[in-house]
């Protein structure tokens, strides 16, 4: 039984992590084309990744979008989660359904709907469309994760502070916020990663000159056949690894996934 379990876990590990090893090795190829195993190892395609201007531009868009959309989603989501948890909001359950609705709508539909009924009729810029779509997608994450943190925080500490003369806002900023900080940071990391890796929402919302990194990778791949996308994939995987390790050390991210 035991050994059977170990074999299974080894296979699962291989299945989950093996592809990343493959992509890292393919990205370090010295050959002209994507081949596995590669003819030799070199860093030329890693260097190429930094030279391709469209990758740099798309990386900038993705970073800006990830940070901006996550921050706005938190600014909107934290008060909403707090109110839903602590106040009797009229139609509370309905409101909760509204703010968490974006999570169950497939991303491609969000993109298409925003393009057709918001961007095109109102003539809005491409970046704003991406920003709206990503923020809407991230609000449910912010609300859910912060709600979970609030659930673990006892109401009476806050009430005590108010009894002792703190204003309600003061109690929120001095007592509640510091206590749910790790939840907010977790929400930020998950939100950023979700936005950064998002493809379906961005598919219809990208425009000339404004493309997110994953979309740019897909389109580069369609017109070029060299290992630079593999090299970029490997770099992104290492970046994610670093984020996960740091986040796990700092706040035990696994509790929030």
């Amino acid at each position: 039984m035991r050994s059977l379990g170990s074999v299974l876990l080894a296979l699962v590990m291989l299945f989950l992590l093996g592809p990343f090893v493959v992509i890292v090795i393919a990205g370090l190829s010295s050959g002209e084309t994507l081949a596995f195993p590669p003819p030799g190892l070199s860093l030329r395609w890693v260097a190429k990744v930094f030279e391709v201007e469209s990758f740099r531009a798309a990386f900038g868009v993705s970073m800006l979008l990830g940070v901006g959309a996550t921050l706005v989603a938190l600014v909107l989501g934290v008060p909403a989660a707090y109110a839903l948890d602590r106040y009797k909001v009229p139609g509370g359950e309905a409101v909760r359904s509204i703010v968490t609705a974006p999570i169950i709508v497939p991303g491609i539909i969000v993109g298409l709907a925003l393009l057709r009924f918001l961007l095109v009729p109102l003539g809005l810029p491409v970046m704003l469309g991406l920003f709206l779509g990503h923020t809407a997608l991230l609000i449910p994450y912010a609300v859910r994760i912060v709600s979970a943190s609030l659930n673990n925080l006892r109401v009476d500490i806050e009430e005590a502070a108010i009894l002792l003369g703190a204003s309600r806002a003061g109690a929120f900023f001095r007592i509640v916020l510091p206590n749910i900080r790790s939840g907010i940071v977790a929400a930020f990391i998950l939100g950023f990663v979700t936005s950064f890796n998002q493809v379906p929402v961005s598919l219809f919302l990208s425009g000339p000159g404004v493309t997110t990194l994953p979309i740019e990778m897909l389109s580069y791949m369609e017109f070029n056949y060299d290992p630079s996308v593999a090299a970029l994939s490997a770099l992104l995987a290492l970046l994610s690894l670093a984020v996960v390790v740091v986040a796990e050390r700092l706040l035990g991210l696994s509790r929030y996934v």
């Binding site: 868009v61 921050l71 706005v72 810029p125 970046m127 704003l128």
Partner: peptide, 18 residues
Amino acid sequence: VRTILGATAALMLTGTAH
């Protein structure tokens, strides 16, 4: 708040920056 305002403003501007 200032960081967020800054980020948002930057977002809005990129569309029309050129």
